[in-house]
Amino acid sequence: MLYIIAEVRNVQIFQVNDTIQCVVTGPIGTNSYIIWTHPVLVIDPGYGTGSIVREPCVVLLTHGHFDHVCGLKELECERVYVSEPDSKWLKDPHLNLSVYFDEDFVFDSQVELLKEGSFEIAGLKFQIHLTPGHTPGSMMLRTDGVIFSGDTIFLDSVGRTDLPGGDEKTMRRTLRQIRELLKNLEPNTLLLPGHGEFGTVEEVLKQNIFLREEGS
């Protein structure tokens, strides 16, 4: 069970393991993740992340929606990594959906592009899994017994496909691939989603009806 270890400016902080914290941020309860390595890694920064990370950091984005990127301007970003398809989301308030939050969010600083495969940073080796469906460039990041799944899959659900760039058929293909991936991982691997509770791969395979359907 996870416990709140702190609240900073209405931001709740949970300890996931020795190095990873989950920061639940606004505007819609987004799970941002901080990995306290050197440099610090921030995954999907929402509002308020800058009140916790006050040093130079590297940002990894699972996709380009506003609630997962709005904290970028609070941080001192050494580098920002995103998939090529979703890189344009950062510069378009309609694609990143910030216009629906009465903002016109644009992040026009240089970004680095991530592709499917291996990626090493801050002493960690990540496996990048491109998982289009929620957005064209959604991806999951896997390292050291954890998977950061963004809005592709949650503990008991999946990301919406009715938003700009979403595609239901593509998501179905992605879910079939994810199911096979999860079946071949250690059952106690943690899945850390972009919203809601997190759990083990074993729990996700049991509780996520969408993955069960794709396996039938």
Rank of each mutant, 00 (worst) to 15 (best):
G123E: 02
K169D: 14
E186G: 01
M1I: 12
L205V: 06
H94K: 14
T135P: 01
S98D: 05
F198P: 10
G215M: 03
D44G: 06
G29C: 01
T62Q: 09
E214Y: 05
G29F: 03
K73F: 15
T200I: 11
T62S: 15
R54G: 11
V16H: 01
F107I: 14
L182D: 06
C57K: 11
T49H: 04
G133M: 07
I5M: 08
G48A: 06
D18W: 05
S118Q: 14
L185C: 09
E120T: 15
F126L: 02
P132N: 03
E7C: 04
I35A: 13
T131L: 08
V24M: 12
C77E: 06
V16Y: 03
V11P: 00
D144P: 00
H68P: 06
P56T: 01
H65P: 02
K91L: 14
G199E: 02
H195V: 02
E202L: 08
L175P: 03
Y33G: 03
W36G: 05
I178W: 00
D44V: 08
L175Q: 05
L75H: 10
L185S: 00
H94M: 13
T189Y: 00
L41A: 06
P164H: 01
C57T: 14
K183A: 13
H63T: 07
G165H: 07
L124C: 13
F154C: 05
R173L: 04
Q15L: 13
H195K: 14
E74L: 00
K73S: 14
Y3S: 11
T135S: 03
L61T: 06
Q110N: 15
P27R: 04
L114S: 07
L190Y: 05
E197A: 15
E214T: 15
N31V: 11
P136M: 04
E202I: 06
E186C: 07
T135F: 06
S32A: 13
D104G: 11
E7R: 06
L90I: 10
L61E: 08
S216L: 11
E202V: 03
I5Q: 07
